[in-house]
């Protein structure tokens, strides 16, 4: 098992938006620690430390040791919220893990042997349907990634979960069907030559094509 990183946090005195905003003003990232046997705790993380862990990748499938006021707990990050414009982290959720706990995690998919795929050689595009797949497994056996072999795949082929060799003890949460992970599609990009007829379509023409609106009904 990979080395477990340690991340420090402070207790926040209160929960709620005012406390979260105060933490952000102080250069910290508000978060919450829940699950296991302890009570849910409002915490604040060091922004730089969290950024460093996020940059390492696989943040949501890696176990961490979270030190809150001197007490170290084994946790699994469950969610990080990001600002929609700046993409800076706004909040982080951590779940306490108990011994032998099983968890549901989203595991990234890696694709190998793209050069051995006749479909991709012919200009096909690997269309990834699921960049991550949800699995249920023990917390200490979370796979880093699952590998999909593209060797011998032609344009039009679909790669389903049944074609992927999964580690022992790891089961997909979707069990009712053999779901698709990726397909090899023909390239859809074309350098189109604009036709005069296509260019002449205006909103006025589209409006003319619309049926008369129904009689307004009130109440």
């Amino acid at each position: 098992m990979a080395e477990i990183d340690k991340i420090a946090a402070e207790l926040r005195p209160r929960s709620g938006k005012s406390s979260a905003r105060a933490a952000r003003r102080a250069g910290q990232i508000p978060g919450v620690l829940y699950g296991g046997e302890g009570p849910p705790l409002a915490i604040a993380l060091n922004r730089r430390e969290l950024d460093r862990e996020l940059a390492k990748g696989r943040f949501s499938t890696r176990l961490l040791d979270l030190e809150v006021d001197g007490k170290v707990e084994r946790v699994l990050p469950r969610e990080v919220q990001f600002h929609v414009v700046t993409d800076q982290p706004l909040h982080a959720d951590f779940m306490r893990l108990t011994a032998g706990a099983s968890v549901t995690v989203m595991v990234p998919v890696h694709f190998v042997n793209e050069v051995d795929s006749p479909g991709i050689k012919l200009g096909g595009v690997l269309n990834v349907v699921r960049h991550r797949v949800e699995f249920r497994c023990r917390a200490d056996q979370i796979p880093e990634f699952i590998t999909v072999d593209l060797a011998g795949r032609a344009i039009g082929d679909s790669i389903h979960i049944s074609a992927v060799k999964l580690p022992e003890g790891v089961t997909p949460t979707i069990t009712d069907r053999d779901f698709t992970i990726a397909t090899i599609a023909a390239p859809t990009l074309k350098l189109e030559i604009e036709t005069p007829a296509a260019a002449a379509v205006t909103p006025e023409a589209a409006a003319a094509a619309t049926p008369a609106p129904a009689a307004p009904g009130k109440g």
Partner: peptide, 11 residues
Amino acid sequence: IVRHMKRQGKM
């Protein structure tokens, strides 16, 4: 975008 991608990829 499409012209710079030169008929490769998907958008």
